[in-house]
Amino acid sequence: MRSPHGLEAVESCQDCVLRSESFFCNLSKDGLQAFESIKLTTLYPKGAVLFVEGQTPRGVYMLCQGRVKLSVCSADGKMLILRVSEPGEILGLSATVSDLLYKATAETVEPCQINFIRKDDFLRFLREHGEACFRVAQHLSQNYHTAYVQIRSLGLSHSAMEKLARLLLDWCNGNSRNTEQGIRLKLALTHEEIARMIGTSRETVSRLFSDLKGRQTIYLKGSTLIVRDRAALEAITND
């Protein structure tokens, strides 16, 4: 089947080639079947907005393929990028489960396949499948932990280089591949967007990248980034 945006849509969770260890993918057969009956598989082009900060939750969005950026809008209308979600993540979870307004805006940065589950269906599914509910609790606990890691870093001042190194290391732990030359990953964000994420200018980000290139720490071609010397990046964050 040829699909738009160059994505192969996978309809069935049970024989999905994208299945990973994460979240709902490895539920038991029963759980997975029930999940399949309530999910709506949708393909989104790049730049589609899934939900907006402050909206009443409609449901959760499970990311199967592609990446989504989460951002918040400051009072003066500037966009600040919180992070980039990877396949296997579920978005809008805490808002849906606890019936609170969405905390951030989610926008696709590349073509994505997303399973949407309506709020009522999702809540019923959780009540009926203890296993899935337990996983939700685990996922939320992890999110809670991340929030505290962020709070802890708030009071501390970091240089732009330190923040960039931290970001790259974080991406290395996510969707990356180990190759002979180093850890290979695709940059989902432009220099401009990275600048918005770490609170500096586009020029500074470009300068820091060429600095790291000059030091042979990274290799950058187009949107492909190879981290050649992970230890050097770690050393920057420990300074």
Binding site: A95, T96, L123, L126, G130, C133, A137, Y144
Partner: peptide
């Protein structure tokens, strides 16, 4: 207990979701 009692687990999840939002408000 959470594994055996889905209803309890669900409430715990709700409580966690709420705490996450609260901690972001504390930023």
């Amino acid at each position: 207990l959470l594994r055996e009692q889905p209803e309890t687990c669900f409430r715990v999840a709700q409580l966690l979701g709420q705490s996450i939002h609260e901690s972001y408000e504390r930023f």
